[in-house]
Amino acid sequence: MITIKNLSKSYGKTEILKNISFDIEKNDKLLIIGPSGSGKTTLIRCLNKLEKDYQGEIIFKKKNIKDIKDELLRKKIGMVFQSYNLFPHLTVKENIELAPSKLTNANKEELSKKTLKLLKSVNIEEKINEYPKNLSGGQKQRVAISRTLANNPEVILFDEPTSALDPESIKSLVKLLNELSKKATIIVVSHDMSLIKSFASKILFIDKGKIIEYGTKEEILKSTNPKIKKFLK
């Protein structure tokens, strides 16, 4: 579904991603894992075209993403930001409906129905008319996820989704991620090792901008690469 070929990305003179190549299949649950500063966020920002200045190619459904209109690609490859970036001047409902109401010709009733369904699926339907500032971190995240889902994306990128959550919320997030993976390809960027066992079907290890290992969960767990063994401990 997505092919990344010889991707390199620099900020100024520092090379952040170094010649990265791998494939992502439809309905993969891909976990991109690596120490902080290794280039994980930069990698998924390239997939979403928030970064465009790179060498190499990113192919989405047989098309170079450079040849796909930004707005179109971003609706198909949605992103849930690490800091959620909810719109503070809009209610939960308005946050979720902003894109579909302005960018599609769906009618109000349909949208309302869909929003309610989305919020029910993430268990915060009672917050529908709240403003973001009145939500906890975990609730904000679920609104951010619903907002992305409202576009019916085929791929969803998550940046460090567990970093601000308590263990209980992590459990329900993982459940939700596994649920979502039935409908979309999920790519999670994290340095949280527990996601290897609880979530991933495939794992990409990245360190200092280079791929150390890429494979299925089973392959990674059996890996003899000393760096990974050290990591998994």
Partner: peptide
């Protein structure tokens, strides 16, 4: 992040 969130939802820059 507000600008990026808008863009990532499929809005162009003016919208």
């Amino acid at each position: 992040g507000q600008l990026e969130a808008g863009l990532s939802l499929g809005f162009n820059y003016p919208k």
